[in-house]
Design a binder for these strands. Structure first.
Length: 577
DNA sequence: GCCGTTTTCGGCCCGACTGTTTTCAGTCG
C-alpha cells in the first residue's frame, strides 16, 4: 500500500464528511492526516510494521487515525469509507470541483433537486430549477453554468515554467501604473511548486483603482470574476485564475507572507502567534489593536520568534521546527551550479550540435558539462551502439579540444533494459567520464521487477547516476511502480547518485523524495536533459525543486568544482572495483 | 479528530467577496 493510496482514503472520507455537514475540525483532521501520509518521506507501511515506531508520533495523528491507518494498510481500505459512500451518492463529490460550489450547496442541490452528478447539475441549471431554491438565485445559477463551461480548464494546473511566463508578463504590465509601489507574485508560484493552479499577485499602492483598471486591460485576460476594493480576480485565456490583492505599504510583508502560504504553514504561524497573545493577518502582526510588525516578511517572522523562512520550505513539513532550532538549511542557489550533467545532441535526438551545446554551456558560465546521448535501445531517438558511441566521444574530444574555458565530460544516458541488464557492455561504459542510467522501456512492469532493474543499475560500478528515477510526466504519466525507499537505501549504500531532471514536465525526483534522499545522505545531480540550447535554461527549475527538498549546495554534486566532482566520480567507481 | 510550560475540555487561522440576504452564509485562498 503506497502512501498516496492511504491518503486518498482519508481525502475521500474528509470530502464525504464535509458534504454531510460534519464538524469542520473533524474534517480538517482527516485532511491533515491525508497530507501527512502523502508527504511522508518513507512508506507509512514501514512504520506500521516496525514495532519500535509509533504512528501516533506523526503530527496530527492520534489514537483513532493511527488505528485507521493500520486498517487501511492491512486491508487496503477502511469500512468508514464504505459506510459514508452509502450515505452520499458517488457523483456528489465531483460537484465540489465546480468553482462556487462547496459542500453545503452540493448537499442542498442533492436534497432539493436530486442532483447527483455534473450532468444533473448542468441540466438543473439549464432548466432554471436552481434559482428557485432558497439560498440560490438567478445569478448563482448563471455562475454555475458559466463555471461548468470552464470546468476542465479550471481544474488544470500548469507547469511552473508556463506560470512563470504569465507571472513575469503581468508584472511588466502592471508596473506601467505610476501609482504602483511594490509588486510580487506570491502563492505556490513563489513557493516554486512544480505546478501552479493560479497566480496571486500582490501590490502596494495608495489607490487600488488604477491598478485594477490596468489589470482589466491585460492582454491575456479572458474575463473578470470579481472586483472589490482590495481584491480582484480574473481568468486568463489559458484558463488560469489570477488574484490581485492590494495592500498599503506598511502591510506589504504581512500580505506577502500570508499570500505566499502554504495554508498549512500559515496556520502553524498563526497558532504560534496566538500563543504569544498576537494576531497575524494580511495587514500585520497585532497585539490588541496595535500593529507591531508587517512592513517586511522578516519582521513578521521575527514577531513570532522565527528567522525568515525561504518560501520553498513553507509547506508545514518541519521547517518551523528547523527555524526554532536554528537549523534552517542554506538552500542551494542557481549560481551554485557549475555544470549541467544531462543533455543530448544531434548525435541522437537533440536539436543542437556538440559544438553548439558546448558554446551555449560556456555562455551560461559553467565550468564543466556532460554530453549524455542515448544508447542503442532507444531506437526512436537514434540511440548509439558501442561503436557509434566511441566515435561520438572521439568527436566530442576533438571539438572540445578547440573550445577553451570549459571541460566537457564524455557521457552517455544508458538504458536499463527490460530484463535488468544494461544496454552497453561494461568495457564500453568504463571509458565514459559520466554515466547516467535510465529506464525508458517497460515502464509498466510490476513493482518487484522494475525495482530490481533500477537496483541492478545502482549496483553496477560504472553507473554514476540514475536519470529521472521515477519516470513520471507531471499530469500525464504516473511514476513507475518502483519501490523508491529501496532505491534510496541502495543509492546510499552503493554511493550512486540520483537525478533531479530539470525538465518542467519531469522534475523528478520530486520534493518529497528529495527530503527522503537528504535524510539518507544520497547525493543528487541536477541535469536539464536538454534537447536544445534553450532547454539548458531549465536548470533553474531543477534548482527550485532541489530547494523544495531542503537541499543545500553540498547535497548536489554539480555544485562542486571540477576537481572535486572528478574525485567523487573516481570514488564511486573504485568503491566497487 | 487532535491537542495541552495555564487546559483531558474546549478550543481549533483569518479575512474578502458575492449573492441573497434585512444581518449573514457560503466559498475561497
Amino acid at each position: 500500500m503506497e502512501n498516496p493510496e492511504v491518503a486518498m482514503v482519508f481525502e475521500e472520507i474528509a470530502d464525504l464528511l464535509e458534504i454531510l455537514g460534519e464538524n469542520p475540525f473533524r474534517v480538517r483532521a482527516y485532511r491533515n492526516a491525508a497530507r501527512t501520509v502523502r508527504e511522508l518521506p518513507e512508506p507509512v507501511e514501514e512504520i506500521v510494521r516496525n514495532p519500535n515506531r509509533k504512528l501516533e508520533d506523526l503530527p496530527g495523528i492520534g489514537k483513532d487515525l493511527a488505528e485507521k491507518i493500520r486498517i487501511i494498510v492491512q486491508t487496503g481500505d477502511h469500512p468508514m469509507r464504505q459506510e459514508l459512500r452509502e450515505k452520499v451518492p458517488p457523483g456528489l463529490r465531483e460537484l465540489l470541483d465546480v468553482p462556487g460550489l462547496g459542500p453545503k450547496r452540493a448537499w442542498a442541490l442533492y436534497e432539493k433537486l436530486g442532483v447527483k452528478s455534473i450532468e444533473d447539475l448542468k441540466k438543473a441549471a439549464q432548466e432554471h430549477r436552481i434559482q428557485r431554491l432558497r439560498g440560490f438565485g438567478a445569478k448563482t445559477e448563471r455562475a454555475i453554468l458559466e463555471a461548468l463551461e470552464h470546468l476542465e480548464q479550471v481544474q488544470r494546473r500548469v507547469y511552473l515554467a508556463e506560470a512563470k511566463v504569465f507571472a513575469e508578463s503581468v508584472v511588466r504590465h502592471l508596473r506601467e501604473v505610476p501609482e504602483l509601489h511594490q509588486i510580487e507574485v506570491a502563492g505556490s508560484y513563489r513557493r516554486r511548486k512544480e505546478t501552479v493552479g493560479d497566480l496571486d499577485v500582490l501590490v502596494t499602492c495608495d489607490r487600488s483603482a488604477p491598478v485594477m483598471d490596468r489589470l482589466a486591460q491585460y492582454p491575456a485576460l479572458a474575463d473578470v470574476l470579481a472586483r472589490g476594493d482590495t481584491k480582484m480576480s480574473i481568468r486568463l485565456k489559458n484558463g488560469m485564475q489570477l488574484d490581485l490583492r492590494v495592500v498599503p505599504d506598511e502591510s506589504y510583508g504581512a500580505a506577502l507572507q500570508y499570500f505566499t502560504g502554504s495554508q498549512a504553514h500559515n496556520i502553524q504561524i498563526r497558532r504560534m502567534a496566538q500563543e504569544k497573545g498576537l494576531k497575524v493577518n494580511e495587514y500585520g502582526v497585532f497585539r490588541g489593536d496595535k500593529r507591531i510588525a508587517g512592513k517586511t516578511e522578516e519582521e513578521v517572522y521575527a514577531a513570532v520568534g522565527l528567522p525568515w523562512i525561504p518560501p520553498e520550505l513553507r509547506e508545514a513539513r518541519g521547517e518551523i521546527e528547523w527555524a526554532l532550532q536554528g537549523r534552517l538549511p542554506k538552500l542551494v542557489e542557481l549560481h551554485d551550479i557549475r555544470g549541467d550533467l544531462h543533455m543530448h545532441t544531434t548525435a541522437t535526438d537533440g536539436r543542437a550540435s556538440i559544438e553548439e551545446m558546448i558554446l551555449a554551456c560556456k555562455e551560461m558560465g559553467y565550468q564543466y558539462m556532460a554530453i549524455t546521448d542515448h544508447s542503442k535501445r532507444v531506437t526512436v531517438a537514434g540511440g548509439l551502439d558501442a561503436k557509434a558511441l566511441r566515435a561520438h566521444w572521439a568527436e566530442i574530444d576533438r571539438i572540445a579540444g578547440r573550445i577553451p574555458g570549459i571541460t566537457v565530460l564524455k557521457g552517455v544516458e544508458m538504458d536499463i533494459l527490460e530484463d535488468g541488464s544494461m544496454d552497453l557492455p561494461d568495457d564500453v561504459v568504463a571509458e565514459a567520464d559520466w554515466v547516467v542510467a535510465s529506464v525508458h522501456y517497460g515502464q509498466n512492469q510490476p513493482r518487484e521487477q522494475i525495482t530490481r532493474r533500477i537496483l541492478n543499475a545502482i549496483k553496477n560500478p560504472y553507473v554514476h547516476c540514475i536519470g529521472h528515477p521515477t519516470g513520471r510526466l507531471i499530469g500525464k504519466r504516473k511514476p513507475y511502480e518502483v519501490d523508491l525507499d529501496a532505491v534510496l537505501k541502495a543509492a546510499a549504500d552503493y554511493g550512486c547518485f540520483l537525478e533531479v531532471n530539470a525538465q518542467p514536465s519531469r522534475l523528478d525526483l520530486d520534493d518529497v523524495a528529495l527530503l527522503a534522499a537528504r535524510e539518507r545522505g544520497v547525493l543528487i545531480a541536477i541535469g536539464t536533459d536538454a534537447h536544445s540550447i534553450d532547454e539548458l535554461r531549465f536548470m533553474e527549475f531543477g534548482v527550485y525543486q532541489a530547494r523544495r527538498g531542503a537541499l543545500e549546495a553540498k547535497h548536489i554534486i554539480n555544485t562542486r568544482p571540477l576537481k572535486e566532482l572528478l574525485k567523487l566520480l573516481r570514488q564511486r567507481r573504485s568503491s566497487r572495483a
